[in-house]
């Protein structure tokens, strides 16, 4: 994987004459919910930098977003976990290419397998690095940009799994819970500056990440719904947002169940 940027495919004259609605960086742009959010930005006339590993897939998504109205789309094929220590340099580079940056979305993550992680240190490392240890670098680098420019938003995808440790996925849950706390702290530090930070906690989402699970029913949301939630979170709402919102109540109940009851379940 090289860290180079994809070519700007928009005609240069158009790029210079049309002012984008927002300048947006999406980390993990190839996930289903990131794509859904990117399409909303595209229809609004935003300029975007798409970051993920696979260059050819990024190019296909970039073409789609251009057709849907994005005034400028750039791609950066890199490994977000490996490059996390260089987050500050990369973000500065992308902000420069866009002129500046208004919204930074962190969407990448790795669900993993708890049973495997319990016996395989590599899996445990991958879960915690992908969802937390690498993500904090991107969040901190984003926060520094936002703090300095005094406007814009960081939106990071956490999970309802981060609200209570459960036997079925506590490695993932702890990492996702950790990133929510981290972003909540950033939001606190940005208070009064005009810039914002939000951790979005999705419930069950019908995406390839969850294809191993049985789906359907009222608790499952579509990737499009989550895309709308991410887009909205960049403009409004508190530092911890459940998506859909009903999960706030559901998780309040789940957190309040005493251990002697909870331990009788297999959740």
């Amino acid at each position: 994987m090289d860290g180079s940027l994809g070519a700007i495919a928009m005609q240069p004259d158009l790029k210079n004459t049309i002012k984008p609605s927002n300048r947006v960086v999406i980390l993990g742009a190839l996930s289903a919910m990131a794509t859904a959010a990117a399409r909303i930005y595209a229809a609004e006339g935003a300029a975007l930098v798409l970051v993920a590993r696979n260059e050819a897939r990024l190019a296909a998504l970039a073409a789609d977003l251009r057709a849907r109205g994005a005034v400028e789309v750039e791609t950066a094929a890199l490994d977000l976990e490996a490059e996390a220590p260089q987050a500050r340099l990369h973000l500065a580079d992308w902000a420069k290419r866009l002129g500046s940056v208004d919204h930074i979305h962190l969407v990448y993550g790795y669900l993993g397998d708890q049973a495997k992680a319990s016996i395989d240190p590599t899996e445990l490392t991958r879960i915690t690095v992908s969802n937390f240890a690498s993500a904090v670098h991107w969040c901190e680098a984003a926060a520094n940009i936002l703090r300095a420019q005094r406007h814009g938003a960081l939106v990071a995808v956490s999970s309802v799994a981060g609200d209570r440790g459960r036997q079925s996925n506590y490695a993932y849950g702890a990492a996702k819970g950790g990133i929510a706390l981290f972003v909540q702290g950033i939001a606190h530090s940005l208070a009064g500056t005009g810039a914002r930070a939000v951790a979005v906690k999705p419930g069950f989402v019908d995406t390839p990440m969850t294809d191993g699970l049985k789906k359907g029913g009222p608790m499952w949301a579509s990737a499009d719904q989550l895309g709308r939630a991410l887009r909205r979170a960049a403009d409004a709402g508190g530092p911890i947002q459940y998506a859909p919102g009903k999960w706030r109540m559901v998780m309040a109940i789940i957190r309040s169940v005493p251990a002697f009851v909870f331990h009788k379940t297999k959740l």
């Binding site: 289903a32 296909a60 998504l61 073409a63 789609d64 057709a67 849907r68």
Partner: peptide, 15 residues
């Protein structure tokens, strides 16, 4: 899920 536009020419209307 294979729902990406590959090209759309606003002048000629070919998608």
């Amino acid at each position: 899920s294979l729902d990406r536009v590959i090209a759309f020419d606003r002048e000629t209307g070919v998608m």
